[in-house]
Computed example of a mutant assay.
Amino acid sequence: MAHVLSVSGSPSATSRTTALLRHLGTRLTAHGHRVTALEVRSLPAEALLGADPLHPAIAAAAELLAAADGVVVGTPVYKAAYSGLLKCLLDLLPQYALAGKVVLPLATGGSTAHVLALDYALRPVLSSMAPAQITPGWFVLDREISVREDGTVALPERAAGPLAQVTDRFSLALGGRPVLSAASA
């Protein structure tokens, strides 16, 4: 099956966005895909802020992206836009870094007022990087993401069902096998 790179643009060490991406990674693995996680916060700040694409850690991140068939991009929404940390990484990547790839944009935030950040802030930047396809994304309210002690995620059905559907649609675009129940996340 496909190789998926899961990119978390959250600066937080206890990020619900990152937990949500792990949750999706588990579902994508069940679809037969191989998932690799990249937390942008783990990259050296001096390389990100100094715009150093030749730094070994940035070059390694670019290689992970180049090797992927699909990319899940997750970000918290701050002030109606995706995170500045994610922007730093995207700015360092080649212009057509997403060429030929299927992309799934995801966002988390404190209010439904931020839901449009997916389509009006993140999607245009991703589109400029020439992906083969950007599948429909999804926004999840922070308060709906509960991280259990074992690290697994619990979501109310109003979030779990649609999130499973967009994940399955992304998987199918990658050539994954369909699942019987879209809500079984």
Rank of each mutant, 00 (worst) to 15 (best):
S146A: 15
A107P: 00
E63Y: 00
A97Y: 02
A113K: 11
Y120W: 11
Y120T: 06
L86E: 03
F139Y: 15
L85R: 10
L122S: 06
P44I: 09
L98P: 02
A51F: 12
G151P: 08
A113S: 12
A61N: 05
A117D: 10
A59T: 13
V115Q: 07
E149Q: 13
L54M: 09
G137H: 04
P136V: 12
L116I: 14
K87Q: 12
L43Y: 12
L90V: 07
C88M: 04
P44Y: 10
E39I: 02
A107Q: 12
Q95F: 05
A113D: 11
A99N: 12
H55P: 00
D142G: 03
P53R: 06
T152H: 10
A59P: 01
L89G: 01
G110M: 09
D69I: 10
Y120I: 07
P105R: 04
P94Y: 13
L64S: 14
L43T: 10
A121D: 14
E63T: 15
A51E: 10
L85D: 07
S42M: 09
V102I: 15
V103A: 03
L90M: 11
L85E: 11
P156R: 12
V115I: 15
V77K: 01
A57C: 02
I134E: 04
E46C: 05
G70W: 04
R148M: 10
L43P: 10
A130K: 15
S128W: 03
V147I: 15
L155N: 03
S127P: 00
I58A: 05
G151K: 12
V147G: 08
A68W: 01
R148I: 00
A66P: 02
S128M: 06
P56I: 12
I145Y: 03
V73C: 08
T75A: 05
G74H: 08
S128I: 04
D119N: 13
V72N: 02
V77T: 15
S127K: 09
A132V: 04
V73N: 05
L98Y: 10
L90R: 00
T112F: 11
T135N: 08
L49P: 00
D150Y: 09
V115M: 11
L104W: 01
A117Q: 08
P94R: 13
A130R: 14
